[in-house]
Design a protein around this nucleic acid. Structure first.
Length: 563
RNA sequence: GCCCCCGUAGUUCAACGGAUAGAACAUUGGGUUUCUAACCCAACGACGUAGGUUCGAUUCCUACCGGGGGUACCA
């Protein structure tokens, strides 16, 4: 936080800092935070410390510094209330953003991030559940890039495991080549669902499935060909969705790549005495404070965990990242605890920062969605529904737009709306899937932000002179509050990155847009008589649009120039 | 059984241990001869229960109640 304050108040080439901050070396990051106080407090900003000593020290320092940005300092309990020199602050803040444009808020952390996300299972269409991993992962990737990380995006496909044995069995029993050719993902899903149903009646077919997997792991040529034919069309289908979301992975990998390496790691575990023998060829691991788990099946096949272990080792070896993130649902928390604990024992992790970033389930009627029970909603279905709704509304509200524009804008609004509806929630918590909420285009939606952006674009297109005044000025509180909110953007990005919480950016953008719309509704911008004030207001609006656009870009959401 | 997560307006969600708990939707009442009313203004309305720690608890701890998830040959 100190760094944050320093960064902001001491931009290079900007005469813009508090001299007292030079003395802050003795105070650590965690001691002070910068807040915008609640509305009933008069101060512009508040520094907060939990340590009365630091509090007193700081407020005295600030008072003594007599810098031109602060008119008054008042200590109040744990707070140091700062009363800014509003004119100076307003001018400098806007000038700073004008100079930086969309690089405003960029940080210079020079580190490497490896992030695994989306990671769908082959032979199943992308469902609403995968949306979370996909959009949270992409947002976190961009948030880190904004902080200065170099990011490697990997999509680790679920392309191995007993589910493939099941699929092979189902295909051999009930498969129809023509149907599969017509619509591969749909037909393969049907086969999988059929297997689940049949296995309820006859448990023994699950053994058949495991046998097929075992054959696959031993390199059965006929089965490998079949596997290949299942995998390819799925990947093609996934890529269509990623393109629609504007997501590009650096690599598509899959569990299938790690069968060999995981067998080696299993041997290593045996050598080191990390596991005990169980029934057949099965191996069991027991680690402190964790439930014991299986390392190898009794028929000698690998498991999800062992393949993941090999993948982790491979990633560290190939990329040597400072940080590794797994964007995977909370229901796999135990799996990752076990994985990381075992990797520690094997000295794979060492001093690397490896983290499971979990997220809540998307519930339907309070229950987990299930492909088998047909309660899952397909991602493509949601996008199509949302886009067609936005198209309808555009027809209604903006009939004058060209046909091409309508099409383009409805795609931007429809997709953005779905993505935003997911990201705006605290990722740890479960989400109740609600069509009305997904398709809501009012306050608290991406469309609200996009609409605000389009409004600003409209103003900018109307003005003939948008030159930047030497000194930017303002007249009312609404304008000044907007400057304060713009000022805080880099801090929001920081917090959002540190805690891996994209929803913080959503809340921020909603507040910002709301403040702007309030300003817009109460003040005329282009009819302002005083020309200096008018130009200042145009700049204010413009910089709000810069931050909204950049904020949404980080969340993976586009903005339309009109709507 | 054991482990993990979650209980905030009628509903869906916010709130680094801090100031009078914020929004949106719904409901009620206002606003457009002037920059996009997909908007703005106003009213109404909430921390599951009981203790504890703290100058201060929605936030941390304990118990209970309620919901969800996980728990070895799925991923």
């Amino acid at each position: 936080m100190i760094n944050f304050i320093k960064n902001i108040f001491s931009q290079k080439n900007e005469d813009f800092y508090f001299s007292f901050l030079k003395d802050l070396e003795t105070v650590t990051e965690k001691d002070v935070t910068l807040n915008i106080p609640p509305s009933h407090i008069e101060a512009d900003f508040a520094l907060m410390t939990n340590n009365p000593k630091i509090n007193k020290y700081l407020s005295n320092k600030i008072k003594d510094s007599k810098n031109k940005y602060i008119d008054e300092v008042k200590a109040a309990g744990p707070f140091i209330n700062l009363f800014l020199n509003k004119k100076t602050f307003y001018n400098k803040t806007l000038k700073n953003i004008i100079a930086r444009e969309n690089s405003y808020g960029n940080n210079k952390i020079n580190k490497k991030l490896f992030i695994e996300y989306s990671s769908p299972n082959i032979a199943k269409p992308l469902g609403i559940g995968h949306l979370r991993s996909t959009v949270i992962g992409e947002a976190l990737a961009k948030i880190h890039e904004k902080q200065g990380y170099r990011v490697f995006r990997e999509n680790y496909l679920g392309d191995w495991g007993t589910q493939f044995g099941k699929l092979v069995y189902a295909y051999k029993e009930w498969g129809n080549d023509e149907e599969i050719k017509k619509n591969p993902t749909k037909e393969l899903k049907n086969l999988y669902v059929r297997f689940q149903k049949e296995s309820e009646k006859d448990k023994s077919i699950e053994d058949n499935a495991r046998e097929f997997l075992n054959k696959l792991e031993n390199g059965d040529k006929e089965l490998m060909k079949l596997w290949e034919s299942f995998r390819e069309p799925s990947v093609v289908g996934f890529k269509k969705t990623y393109t629609r979301l504007g997501i590009k992975f650096d690599r598509f990998s899959g569990e299938s790549e790690y069968v060999k390496q995981s067998l080696d790691l299993i041997n290593e575990c045996e050598k080191r005495g990390l596991c005990e023998k169980g029934e057949g060829k099965s191996l069991i691991v027991e680690l402190d404070g964790l439930p014991s788990f299986l390392l190898r099946k009794k028929d000698g096949s690998t498991l999800y965990l062992t393949r993941d272990l090999a993948a982790l080792k491979d990633r560290i070896k190939n990329h040597n990242p400072d940080k590794i993130l797994y964007i995977v649902g909370n229901e796999q928390k135990l799996h990752f605890r076990q994985l990381f604990a075992l990797a520690e024992k094997l000295k794979i992790i060492e001093d690397h920062n490896v983290e499971h970033v979990g997220y809540g389930l998307i519930l339907s009627n309070g229950k987990k969605m299930s492909t088998r029970k047909g309660t899952t909603v397909m991602l493509s279905e949601i996008f199509n529904e949302s886009v067609s709704k936005s198209k309808k509304i555009i027809e209604e509200k903006s009939p004058e737009l060209l046909k091409e524009e309508k099409k383009e804008i409805s795609e931007i609004l429809g997709v953005g709306s779905v993505v935003y509806n997911d990201l705006r929630h605290d990722r740890e918590k479960d989400i109740n899937f609600d069509w009305d909420k997904v398709l809501s285009f009012e306050g608290g939606s991406a469309v609200y932000l996009q609409y605000t952006y389009a409004r600003i674009m409209s103003i900018i297109n109307k003005v003939s002179n948008d030159s930047i005044p030497h000194k930017l000025t303002f007249e009312n509180d609404l304008e000044f509050d907007l400057a304060k909110q713009l000022f805080i953007f880099p801090k929001i990005l920081n917090i959002s990155c540190e805690n891996e919480e994209p929803h913080k950016i959503c809340s921020y953008l909603e507040d910002l847009a709301q403040s702007f719309n309030s300003f817009y509704g109460n003040t005329s911008i282009i009819n302002t008589e005083n020309s200096n004030l008018k130009l200042s207001r145009i700049q204010l609006a413009k910089q709000v649009s810069v931050v909204i656009k950049e904020g949404l870009r980080i969340l993976g959401i586009a903005v339309p120039n009109k709507m």
